[in-house]
Structures are given as C-alpha cells and as structure tokens.
Deep mutational scan, measured.
Amino acid sequence: WEITFERNGKRITVRTTDHRLLELFEKLWRNGADERELERLAEEINR
C-alpha cells in the first residue's frame, strides 16, 4: 500500500505491506503529531 498524507502543503508518502503501520501513521497524522517526527517515521516505514 502507498498513501500520501498532506497538511498545509506538506506531503509525506508512506509505503508498506503492513496496513497496521499505515493506520498508526494516519492516527498520528490526524492527531497533529510533529511533522519532523512523522517524516522520520515515514522514512523508517518505507525501508
């Protein structure tokens, strides 16, 4: 799966075969987690 999240013109794409990681990322994104931390998390998930 691949999903791109966008907020205030900032886009972060997450790619993984584990839908649970996408759900976790989406919850953090929707709850306003720090964008720098989300970028780092996305990099780890995308590996």
Rank of each mutant, 00 (worst) to 15 (best):
L24W: 13
G9A: 03
K10V: 14
D34Q: 05
D18Q: 06
W1G: 06
H19Y: 15
E2K: 02
G9C: 04
E6R: 03
I12V: 06
T17R: 13
K10M: 15
R40A: 13
E43T: 08
E23T: 12
V14E: 00
E44F: 15
R20V: 10
E37K: 07
K10I: 14
T4D: 04
D18N: 13
L28M: 13
E39D: 07
L21G: 01
E37R: 06
H19G: 09
T16H: 10
E35K: 03
E6M: 11
G32L: 07
R15Y: 12
V14Q: 00
L22D: 00
I12G: 00
E6H: 08
N46L: 08
L22P: 00
R36V: 14
N31T: 11
A42P: 00
W1K: 06
G9F: 02
N8H: 08
R47C: 07
N31E: 13
R47P: 03
I12R: 01
A33D: 03
D18V: 05
D18C: 09
E39G: 05
T13R: 06
E2Q: 08
I45Y: 04
N8I: 02
R30K: 12
L21A: 11
R20Y: 11
N46W: 08
A42K: 03
L21V: 09
T13D: 01
A33L: 07
I45D: 01
E44Y: 15
K27F: 15
D18P: 01
E6F: 11
V14K: 00
R20P: 04
F25D: 00
R36D: 15
A42S: 04
T4L: 05
R47S: 14
T13I: 10
T17E: 08
T13N: 03
N8Q: 05
F25W: 04
L21N: 03
E44K: 11
W1A: 06
I12M: 06
R7C: 08
L41P: 00
L21W: 10
I3H: 11
R7I: 14
F5M: 04
R30P: 01
E2I: 13
T17S: 14
L38D: 00
R30D: 05
E37T: 14
F5H: 02
R30S: 09
E44S: 11
W29Q: 02
W29D: 01
L41N: 01
G9Y: 01
L28D: 01
E35D: 14
L24G: 02
E43C: 08
L24S: 05
R40K: 12
L24R: 08
I45Q: 02
L22W: 09
N46Q: 05
E37Q: 11
L41D: 00
I45E: 02
L38K: 01
R30I: 07
T17L: 11
T13P: 01
F5N: 00
E35L: 15
R11D: 03
D18H: 07
N31A: 11
E37N: 04
D18I: 05
W29H: 02
R36M: 14
N31H: 09
T16K: 01
L24M: 13
E37Y: 13
R11M: 11
V14P: 00
R30A: 10
T13E: 03
T17Y: 13
E23L: 14
R40P: 02
N31C: 10
G9M: 03
N8W: 03
R36Y: 15
R11Q: 12
L22I: 12
R11V: 13
V14H: 00
D34V: 15
D34E: 08
N31S: 15
R20K: 13
I45R: 01
W1E: 04
K10N: 08
E37P: 01
E26Y: 15
E43L: 08
A33T: 11
H19K: 14
R36H: 15
E44A: 12
D34G: 09
I12W: 14
R40L: 14
L21R: 04
R15I: 09
E44D: 11
K10Y: 14
K10T: 13
F25L: 05
R7W: 11
E35M: 15
R36E: 14
E2D: 07
I12L: 08
D34N: 10
D34L: 15
E23N: 10
I3P: 01
N31F: 05
R7K: 12
K10W: 14
D34Y: 09
L38M: 07
E6C: 15
L22N: 01
R7P: 01
E44Q: 11
E2S: 03
K27E: 10
N46F: 09
H19A: 14
I3D: 01
E37F: 13
G9W: 00
G9H: 03
D34R: 03
L21H: 05
R30F: 08
L21C: 08
A33E: 07
N46K: 05
T13W: 03
I12P: 00
W1T: 06
N31M: 12
W29G: 01
L41C: 06
R11N: 07
R20I: 10
N46R: 05
D34W: 15
T16G: 10
L21E: 03
L38G: 00
N8P: 03
N46D: 04
R30G: 04
I45G: 02
I45N: 01
R30Y: 10
L24E: 10
R11I: 11
R40D: 09
I3M: 15
D18F: 05
E39F: 10
L22E: 01
E37M: 13
L38T: 01
N31G: 13
D18W: 04
R40S: 11
L24C: 09
E6W: 09
R7S: 10
A42R: 02
E39K: 06
F25E: 00
I3T: 06
E37I: 14
N46C: 09
E43H: 10
I3K: 14
D18K: 04
L41G: 00
R40T: 11
L28W: 12
L28K: 06
K10L: 15
T17Q: 12
E43S: 09
A42N: 02
N8E: 07
E23G: 06
H19S: 12
E2W: 08
K27P: 00
R20N: 11
E26S: 08
G32I: 03
I3L: 13
R30C: 07
E2L: 05
F5Y: 13
G9V: 00
E37G: 03
R47W: 08
R36Q: 14
R15M: 07
K27I: 13
N8R: 04
R20L: 11
R40C: 10
R11T: 12
R7T: 09
T16R: 02
R20D: 09
R30E: 07
D18L: 05
K27W: 15
L22Y: 09
L28H: 07
L24A: 11
L22A: 05
N8V: 02
G32R: 04
R40M: 13
F5L: 10
T16P: 02
R30V: 08
T4Q: 06
R20C: 04
T13F: 07
